[in-house]
């Protein structure tokens, strides 16, 4: 176990270096000259030259790469080129609101999807099953924009159940008041594909021999489905769920934009628009690190659920 952890943590070093190299190459050779971008339209060669000096762009590639690595190691990516706000501060202040919306969506969506999937898998090929599957397909086919517009107009504006948009100061206020409608809509649009997917995972298990054994023991259907079948189906469900987690770091642009939530999603989109390299670099590196850490967590989780998994 500890050998496995050490090996995996050690393997992260070359992987991260690969990511750093890739980002460095992309920004230096594909991204255009940042000095021109920064100087804007009214620029003369002298100004550009001084900006190049400030950014260290006149140094050799080796020195520039060294600076980048240092930024990654110290987690200090400097300041945003467009707002001059430190990158670390941008991420620290914007990630919170995003997570206040996205984590409830993820948790509610997963729990609900699993429950519905177990139910439809149990009554498989019945009318209920088919009706829910059709409803899922329809729900999947409608754009999130439609959900947002209809939700804001009907539920928030006409019925007045939720604020149309906005964001407050305290976590409690945000979670219960401002995040409620975005979470509801996020769940509504995200749940359908998960139900369909989890249903197939569960159906794969329902026909296994051990399910027949469980019934032959005289267990009731609840125990068969929720204890024996679901635990086995959890393995692919975990894979699916964990693969999504790194995306939490880049927020959800549409939801944040429409509900005026000061989240990271807007920052990411704005940074790309303005070629705000420090912000983009920082986010890219953090997503890469999160992906590696979550992959490791996923493997540990497999081990917890499935005794057959060998961590080597």
């Amino acid at each position: 176990m500890s050998a496995f952890l050490l090996r995996r943590l050690w393997q992260m070093v070359p992987t991260l270096f690969g990511v750093i190299l890739l980002v460095f190459v992309l920004f230096n050779f594909v991204g255009g000259d940042p000095a021109y971008l920064l100087a804007g339209k009214i620029s003369n060669p002298a100004q550009i030259e001084s900006i190049r000096n400030q950014l260290g762009l006149n140094e050799s590639y080796a020195v520039q790469l060294g600076i980048f690595i240092k930024q990654v190691v110290t987690a200090d990516f400097g300041s945003s080129w467009s707002t001059n706000e430190p990158v670390s501060q941008i991420i620290a202040t914007r990630i919170g609101p995003s997570l206040v919306v996205l984590i409830p969506i993820l948790v509610i969506e997963t729990v609900l999807a699993i429950l519905i999937a177990v139910l439809v898998a149990y009554v498989r090929s019945s009318l209920t099953d088919r009706a829910i599957m059709v409803a899922c397909t329809v729900a999947m086919s409608v754009s999130l924009l439609v959900y947002i517009i209809v939700g804001q107009y009907v539920l928030a504006y006409q019925f007045g159940w939720f604020p149309v948009q906005g964001w407050g100061e305290s976590l409690r206020e945000n979670l219960l008041k401002y995040a409620a409608l975005p979470v509801l809509l996020g769940v509504a649009v995200g749940i359908a594909p998960n139900v369909r997917l989890y249903r197939t995972f569960i159906l794969d298990e329902v026909n296994q021999d051990y399910v027949r054994t469980a019934r032959a023991k005289g267990l009731d259907e609840n125990t068969v489905m929720l204890k024996h079948v679901l635990r086995n189906a959890l393995i692919p469900i975990i894979t699916n769920l964990m693969a999504y987690l790194p995306a939490l770091l880049i927020g959800h642009f549409l939801i944040e934009r429409f509900f005026s939530i000061p989240g990271i999603g807007r920052e990411v989109i704005m940074a790309v628009e303005r070629s705000d390299f420090p912000v983009i670099k920082a986010i890219t590196i953090y997503v890469a690190i999160a992906t590696m850490v979550i992959n490791l967590l996923t493997d540990l989780l497999y081990k917890a659920v499935d005794p057959r998994v060998k961590l080597q």
């Binding site: 021999d209 027949r212 054994t213 032959a216 635990r231």
Partner: peptide
Amino acid sequence: IAMIFQDPMSSLNPLF
């Protein structure tokens, strides 16, 4: 009435 099956590996739940 109890029953045993052909393939004991797949007839036992792998996770318990």
